[in-house]
Design a protein around this nucleic acid. Structure first.
Lengths: 241, 241
DNA sequence: CTAGAATTAAAACGAACGTTTGAATTATAT
DNA sequence: ATATAATTCAAACGTTCGTTTTAATTCTAG
């Protein structure tokens, strides 16, 4: 065969392994997935995985990196664009939240095949116990998280930075659960609403965005050890300008 | 030895295994924890774990049930009490949220030793991939979730039930992440604020409560396929009465 | 066409896994 | 004290794990 066919089949083996690993890591977790089931589902030889990726850990990193690079680069690009359009003024919190969380859901919706699968894998990856996974995620997210953190600081100058970080943390959690699958949702409800999976996906983003912005802009908490009485919650100052 | 010493040592073996399993499952996950490291950390023989619990799966269930029973019974008791005091009128959303999420954090704070450990384990358990764990959680939570769902429906009669279920889901996610450890939080920030771990724990509840109630009461989302223009978000109706 | 590199294939490696066995030990009760 | 039950113990069971090895096969390039 010619060169094209060769490179095609090479890419096919690598990508078939990545696709199978993505799906199985999502469904059974990293520790719960063996190299044998990955290569079986990919239809390749067991040794091919170690030949192309070196180890199971490296395979997991490759699975995550393949899509995270696209998502995080788009996140940085959109934030740059929004800040350029704002002309030096702080961005609205809702714009920042949409650049971060909206980009994630929109890109995942684009990639028809593995998009939803990767979303659910990503949701679970944040709570993966393996040290090397958390270390990988930490470095992979360091830049984009720092940029968005600073953008939120500028956007909410009257809110203590510690509160912003905590609420960013809460938003990450709510989003991860939202996308980590409807399994946890079935746990909450019988879920006999008439909408199908398609409409669920379509409406997830506006639903999530409303919740996230509502939480981000909620009145600041009253700590017990702070000065002043434990006032009525409705008397609290709104978090967002 | 007398009867007391016997029962004491019996309970000690069982509880030492439970304590060790709780800690190791939290740190390394279910699949990442072997029966050998559990029994080693507990200082008991390997076969003792299978003798007392039958299998690794049953051990995991015993670890979860030991503390979940206390928490969920208290959740039901507080909701009963609140509804009795309300005299037939719907409860405020903030009261419901505090009964559910506040109880979790307060009980965990009480149990000095394993409280925080179990909180972090529970946060991760919701995303555990193993089928038997999710099945166990589903049955273990069925009653309390149904009761709180109905309470929220009554509390927010003008909000579509599907939205309430989704927002309950988001709240569960935000809470799980909040308690699943500051590991994910270190991922977000350098976290060089001057507060120590003690103050973090003390302030987590009010911080989380503000965020959750803000998200729950956020304006309802506008779906693209709905009637009416994509209005300014501030024009939306508030979700809570 | 052919040498050499890249990839695939079957088989095996040692280690670690959950679980079981059967004897030894300890507690309980008459 | 003694029979009975409950618990602990060391050892081993068969299986599966990630990885490696070595040979066969396929592709690339002169």
């Amino acid at each position: 065969m010619n060169k094209q066919t060769n490179e095609q089949s090479l890419k096919d083996t690598r990508e078939r392994i990545l696709d199978a690993a993505e799906h199985l890591f999502m469904q059974y977790g990293y520790d719960g997935t063996s190299m044998r089931v990955v290569t079986n589902e990919a239809g390749v030889n067991l040794a091919a995985a170690n030949y192309h990726f070196g180890s199971k850990e490296s395979l997991m990193q490759a699975v995550l990196r393949r899509r995270l690079e696209v998502i995080n680069q788009e996140r940085l690009r959109l934030l740059d664009e929004a800040e350029a359009n704002a002309g030096g003024k702080p961005l609205k919190p809702s714009v920042i939240i949409d650049c971060y969380f909206g980009t994630l859901l929109r890109i995942a919706a684009d990639q028809k095949a593995g998009g939803e699968t990767f979303l659910r894998l990503l949701g679970r990856t944040f709570t993966e116990p393996s040290d090397f996974i958390r270390a990988f995620m930490s470095t992979e997210y360091a830049d984009v998280l720092e940029r968005y953190k600073q953008a939120l600081f500028r956007s909410l100058p009257d809110v203590p930075k510690a509160e912003i970080v905590w609420r960013f943390h809460f938003m990450l959690g709510a989003t991860s659960y939202a996308i980590a699958g409807t399994d946890a949702l079935h746990l909450v409800t019988d879920w006999q609403f008439d909408e199908g999976s398609a409409e669920q996906d379509k409406n997830l983003l506006p639903r999530l965005m409303s919740f996230l912005i509502g939480g981000l802009r909620a009145p600041l908490p009253q700590f017990e050890n702070e000065a002043g009485p434990t006032a009525d919650k409705s008397a609290n100052k709104d978090a967002a300008a």
